[in-house]
Amino acid sequence: MRHRHPTVKGALSFSNPTVRAWLFQIIAVVTLVAIAIYLIHNTITNLNNRGITSGFAFLDRSAGFGIVQHLIDYQQGDTYGRVFLVGLLNTLLVSALCIVFASILGFFLGLARLSDNWLLRKLSTIYIETFRNIPPLLQIFFWYFAVLRNLPGPRQAVNAFDLLFLSNRGLYIPAPQLGEGLLAFLAAIIVAIAVSIGLYRYNTLRQIKTGQLRRTWPASLALIIGLPLLAHALFGAALHWDVPELRGFNFRGGMALIPELAALTLALSVYTSAFIAEIIRAGIQAVPYGQHEAARSLGLPNPVTLRQVIIPQALRVIIPPLTSQYLNIVKNSSLAAAIGYPDMVSLFAGTVLNQTGQAIETIAITMSVYLIISLTISLLMNLYNRRIALVER
């Protein structure tokens, strides 16, 4: 019996699934390329008709406006490129503060939700169900207009030991300035941390061999405090402090944390901590209850069980949704434009865009920055998640 071989004509027929798949892909790619070419041509035509020159040369032009808060030196005559750096640093600042505060607050709220104490459990539930169901923009308005803007003026500011001053102009705190003993101070801290890690590892190996556990934290604490103090005594101060003083109608010197930063940090930290608390609770409850019983049968105290047994296993469930909350913090920080906090959106996609008319360039730069920040956070969290993941052997 003779076997028929498929002909070239049959192989290239539209009834062949492979041919159809390739044909549809080619059509999709051609369509996307055509749409992109049309959009680019239409954009260039509109820019030419309005006399707008495209490009990034505007970054070298003088901005001509002031910025209330800047982590680097900035003057009104600086360039738009400098404005970009100021906005970027302000965005990173508020994002980092919110991530830290929301993580700490959310962790303890998540534990409180599982507490045996009825009052603590109910209070944490009320907190979570209240703040996670109110839009973050409304929470920002509440902290800014209802709380912080109603604080007393600079002359009646809340004074803490003549070092901290809280008023409706913001929180004024001493500003650090580098001293001659900075390098020695940093070297002392690095040596103290390295020795502390070595002591901890030595104690762990000793516990495995002998079964005896010795506390290393007193020695580590003494090293971390004592060595920097010794460096300070031998090489001079690592930092000098510029203390704020009331002069006229406002404070001079020190570092000012403006109300917009405080309102944004409070609102986003409180809002996101409610979601993180539920993630923590779900992660702990995802650990099989047999792990609790096994730890209890070994006589481990509840804090040790939570720290050494439950949390390490719960992290494998917690990290992926926690990454999404960190990304939400970065993206929600763009709501700062509603109260005038000088972040990337307010400065670059707002003021700079209005002054230069370079809409495509400013929006593209702003979108790229948020994309890079989000991808970096995702990369770091995924690397940590991969490190703690269970590996089957």
Rank of each mutant, 00 (worst) to 15 (best):
Q75K: 15
A63M: 08
I99S: 06
L246C: 10
Q325E: 12
R215Q: 13
L186W: 08
N354C: 02
A11H: 11
S346W: 12
T7P: 06
V391H: 05
R201K: 12
G350Q: 09
V29L: 12
L227W: 02
F249C: 01
N159T: 00
V369E: 02
F165A: 01
L93F: 01
K209L: 09
G290W: 09
S15L: 13
A231D: 03
Y144V: 02
Q285C: 02
A262Q: 12
F275G: 08
A274Q: 04
E180Q: 13
F185W: 13
F56Y: 15
D60A: 14
S115L: 03
V100D: 00
I44K: 15
T43C: 00
R149L: 13
I329V: 14
A112F: 12
G226A: 12
T216W: 08
D343K: 03
P321N: 03
W241S: 07
Y172V: 04
A389R: 05
V29H: 05
Y80I: 01
D78R: 09
P176F: 04
L223C: 06
I134H: 03
L164F: 15
G340W: 07
R247L: 10
A263T: 01
K9I: 00
S167P: 10
S167G: 10
Y74N: 07
A188W: 07
H240D: 03
G350N: 07
L182H: 08
A192L: 08
V287G: 10
I365T: 04
R296T: 11
V30L: 15
T356C: 11
R252Q: 14
R206I: 00
V8C: 06
W217G: 01
A314P: 00
T43V: 04
F141L: 13
P152D: 01
Q325P: 01
S334I: 02
L375I: 07
I104N: 01
R387C: 00
P136M: 00
S15P: 08
I44V: 14
L12H: 08
D73L: 12
L353R: 14
F58C: 04
L221S: 13
F141R: 00
F101I: 14
N117F: 13
F161M: 08
N159R: 10
P135N: 06
Q156P: 01
E180Y: 05
Q69L: 13
I224T: 11
I128V: 15
G55H: 06
I193K: 10
G81A: 06
I388T: 03
Y200I: 02
H41S: 10
K209V: 04
S273P: 05
L380G: 10
I225W: 02
L166D: 03
P301R: 02
L163V: 09
A28T: 09
P136N: 04
T204S: 13
A256C: 13
P218S: 01
I128C: 14
M381Y: 07
I134T: 07
I373M: 15
A294G: 11
G66N: 14
N16E: 05
L59S: 09
R296Q: 12
G253S: 07
F108C: 05
T31A: 15
Q313T: 06
